Amino acid sequence: MDSRKETPEELIERLRQEELKNNPFGAFSDGVNRAEFGNSTGLFGGLGWKGTGIIILLLVIGYIIYKLLN
């Protein structure tokens, strides 16, 4: 194993892969639940705080423009 520390994203992915090996039907259930209820982890997990802030800012600006035009 590398001497470097594992990032949180790498840790989450490693644990997810181990869970897939140990319980494939549990992973299916997780996928169904994510599709039904939504999951922002995939969207915001890899962006970091700057990317998340930009998305939120764009949503707020879009909402303001929408309200001004109606």
Rank of each mutant, 00 (worst) to 15 (best):
30 D>S: 14
34 R>F: 02
34 R>I: 05
13 E>Q: 08
18 E>I: 14
5 K>A: 02
34 R>M: 12
36 E>S: 02
9 E>R: 12
9 E>G: 13
21 K>R: 15
19 E>A: 11
20 L>E: 13
5 K>V: 00
34 R>W: 10
3 S>D: 14
27 A>D: 04
23 N>A: 14
10 E>D: 03
6 E>C: 00
6 E>Q: 01
37 F>V: 07
30 D>C: 05
3 S>Y: 10
10 E>P: 04
27 A>P: 00
29 S>P: 02
22 N>A: 15
5 K>Y: 04
37 F>D: 06
29 S>K: 15
31 G>L: 13
29 S>N: 09
4 R>N: 12
24 P>T: 06
30 D>W: 13
12 I>M: 15
22 N>C: 09
32 V>Y: 00
14 R>N: 14
12 I>P: 01
12 I>Q: 10
5 K>G: 00
4 R>T: 14
10 E>R: 08
22 N>Q: 15
24 P>M: 00
13 E>W: 00
29 S>H: 04
13 E>M: 09
35 A>D: 10
10 E>K: 03
27 A>Y: 06
20 L>Q: 03
34 R>C: 02
8 P>H: 15
35 A>E: 05
14 R>K: 12
38 G>W: 07
38 G>V: 12
14 R>V: 02
3 S>Q: 06
33 N>H: 01
34 R>V: 10
9 E>S: 09
24 P>Q: 09
7 T>A: 08
16 R>Y: 11
23 N>H: 03
9 E>K: 08
27 A>T: 08
27 A>S: 12
15 L>C: 00
33 N>P: 02
8 P>N: 08
6 E>Y: 05
6 E>I: 04
17 Q>A: 11
5 K>M: 00
4 R>S: 13
22 N>F: 09
14 R>W: 03
33 N>M: 15
24 P>F: 02
16 R>H: 09
18 E>M: 06
21 K>V: 03
15 L>E: 11
18 E>A: 14
34 R>G: 03
3 S>F: 06
13 E>F: 05
4 R>W: 08
28 F>Y: 00
31 G>T: 01
4 R>L: 12
8 P>T: 03
21 K>Q: 13
20 L>K: 12
26 G>P: 00
22 N>R: 15
4 R>I: 06
20 L>G: 13
24 P>L: 09
28 F>G: 10
5 K>W: 11
23 N>C: 07
12 I>T: 06
31 G>D: 00
24 P>V: 01
